[in-house]
Design a binder for these strands. Structure first.
Lengths: 394, 394
DNA sequence: CAGCAATAGTTTGGTGCTTGAACTTATCCA
DNA sequence: TGGATAAGTTCAAGCACCAAACTATTGCTG
């Protein structure tokens, strides 16, 4: 049952505020009249709503725009760079990263702290996370930045309903309540704390950085994770555990995986499989060999591309998504991966003959997850400015 | 870009009408006061909206309800059995089925015409479909039933935006505009014609018949299709081509499929594969042998179960859906299919250790697709009664 | 340089829909 | 028979959007 709330005038306000802010976000520099034309609202309504958004510091009115031809010039509207910022936190296996991002997507401050979190007790790691967040908050006040929310990216399965980190295999964590742990260790301003899976948030960052509204983001690290974006929204399953691509059974034979099955994608197209087969020590060495035209290296990548294509064709047949974005290690291997992968998808996806498939490279690379964590909170503000405004004025 | 329309008073009306009607649909016999409590709307608003719905013949006010204790009795509200009916049509490979379903989900009339549509030209088949629809419409007027819309289920890929049937491999059809073909051959009343994939519509019927809000419905007919329901809504991909499960590559070897690839699920776990392997002529004969304990037959089903489990585990890992509903031929084979399938999923789905998976049998079986076609148009009316009311009064 | 056309933005009166509170109706129970 | 309780209705009020008229600013033309 999709539990729905009753609608009133406030609902109309909420919807139209989001509509107006969305139009401004999508075409910065637009005028009030432009927003009216784009959204279908009247100029009068748009003026009222924009004024509200400006006084809430979400929108900046930058004065008259430059344009040829007759008529009065409109005023240029855009998301305010002095409005609320997102504080992004990423807890990875070998580092803790933080950043402050403004509404325009600009990174105003960022920091990466190297750390070996793999074999350290959770309490110790969380203490360092607390320090990193305090540090970020201090920089925010120094730069007179107001923090609108905190997003945390973790390499594990996060329960969407509760925000609880259920399992993080590579950290060895179970059932960690990150918002609670954070507020226990840090004096947080009264802002929302969102927790999300690292691969999913990376997909969100990719969306912010220009990816289309429907795509699958594949992050090829030690594991292989998929972030699914449908209709401009992240889809993370009924409980938040979705997007597990690494254990797609692509071969009935193949090596035994840690999950117990045979022929998992991760074992055939994961970073380690490619490196072993190419005889390279690390991704850097692999790229060097590929650039030098090493045949074993390019054969290894082509093979991985085909396995990946096999798995992704299933995803595309199931979800009917037209775009694949390659992130993580796959982004680095894109020049060699792209063509065989595209060919495999073209052959296997049923709708391919009349609905073309695009394989593109990630725009952000490794930073995607922190960025995604920060922008996820901004996204929730832009998607529903009225709630933010109500919370601020209260 | 999720192109959104501006909201006004009418939007509020629309939303709340749907909210009220939804509450009535979910708990038949509820009173106005009950709807108010359930939806959060005021009694005043509910009264107004219910009156509108009653005068549009969508809701029936069946007089005072029976209840113990003090206080005035409320009037019992339920979806009207005399309101608009859905006319369902299914174009299958070996039959054409039609039915008339009322808002309560009751089948008021139905018919199945055997036919061999596989090797017949599209024009001939469409002519027979036209006859079947005319027949159904005649019965509707005889029973003084008003048809609110026509739903057509087809075994192929349907483009959601246009309603165009892009490809139906088992019928050998390409780019058929079914609404146009239908109105060319039949005098249609001015009602909407919706076209949908047979598996997706079957899933919708299953949802109507009591399935949970999140599940994957697998229909095992000549092809294998999956209907994905997320949050009580059908998910059919960005363009409507979603849910193609039949060509999941589950084996790197295996027979060549009509799609050109090897080892497609359809070839290994489809109806024909099972029958061939079991040495049975048709599903009925197969069930007889299974009941008699025939070893070849049960081995064939177990093998299919494992292949199906391989493919479904990928779906569950990707979408994090907790329930699988077996329909079509698989529903008949459920007693023998269930256990090996469940075991395969338990072993392969990553979240299975802490989030249990349910494999259940379809409540409707073969009828699911026609029923789904009929209820899909009713569903669109219930989901947005205002549009229906506006269309009727205009 | 005055006047006109074109475009941006504001003001104002009006409409539609929900709300809250008071009111009416219906039933049980003492 | 009267009081308590619950269902449903009536009505003035408020809120958000809309349409249209109005003001403001700019380029073009004679």
């Amino acid at each position: 049952m999709s539990e729905s709330r009753p609608a009133g005038q406030h609902t109309v306000r909420r919807h139209n505020s989001a509509l107006v802010l969305g139009a401004i976000a999508e075409s910065p520099g637009i005028s009030r009249a432009g927003v009216a034309a784009r959204t279908g609202l009247t100029k009068a309504t748009v003026s009222t709503l924009v004024d509200r958004l400006v006084s809430a510091a979400l929108v900046r009115d930058a004065g008259p725009e430059h344009r040829a031809g007759p008529g009065r010039r409109g005023t240029s509207l855009s998301l305010s760079p002095t409005g609320p910022h997102g504080l992004g936190v990423e807890i990875a296996v070998d580092y803790i990263a933080t950043c402050l991002v403004d509404l325009t997507g600009e990174v105003r401050w960022s920091q990466v702290r190297e750390a070996d979190n793999r074999d350290r007790p959770a309490g110790r790691v969380l203490a360092r996370v607390g320090t990193a967040v305090r540090d970020a908050l201090r920089h925010a006040t120094e730069l007179s930045i107001t923090v609108g929310g905190i997003g945390v990216a973790v390499p594990g399965l996060v329960e969407a309903s509760s925000g609880l980190l259920r399992r993080a295999p590579n950290l060895g964590w179970h059932n960690v309540d990150l918002p609670a742990e954070l507020s226990k260790r840090t004096e947080l301003p009264g802002v929302p704390v969102l927790v999300g899976n690292e691969a999913n948030l990376a997909a969100l960052a990719e969306l912010r950085a220009g990816a289309p509204a429907d795509f699958v983001h594949v992050s090829g690290e030690i594991g292989i994770g998929a972030g699914i974006v449908l209709g401009g929204e992240l889809y993370d399953g009924t409980r938040g555990f979705g997007g597990e691509l690494g254990h797609f059974p692509v071969s009935s034979r193949g090596p035994v995986c840690s999950c117990g099955a045979r022929g998992c994608l991760e074992r055939l197209a994961g970073q380690e499989a490619i490196l072993t087969r190419a005889g390279a020590a690390d991704p850097g060495a692999l790229v060097e060999r590929l650039e030098a035209g090493d045949r074993a290296a390019s054969a290894a990548v082509r093979s991985a591309a085909r396995w990946l294509g096999t798995a992704l064709s299933s995803v595309l047949n199931l979800l009917d998504v037209p775009t694949v974005v390659l992130g993580g290690t796959y982004a680095r291997l894109y020049p060699w991966l792209h063509e065989p992968l595209r060919a495999e998808l073209q052959a296997r996806v049923l709708s391919a003959p009349w609905a073309s498939i695009e394989v593109r490279r990630s725009a952000l690379g490794t930073e995607a997850a922190v960025r995604g964590a920060a922008t996820s909170v901004l996204r929730s503000i832009v998607a529903d400015p009225d709630t933010f405004i109500a919370a601020r004025t209260a």
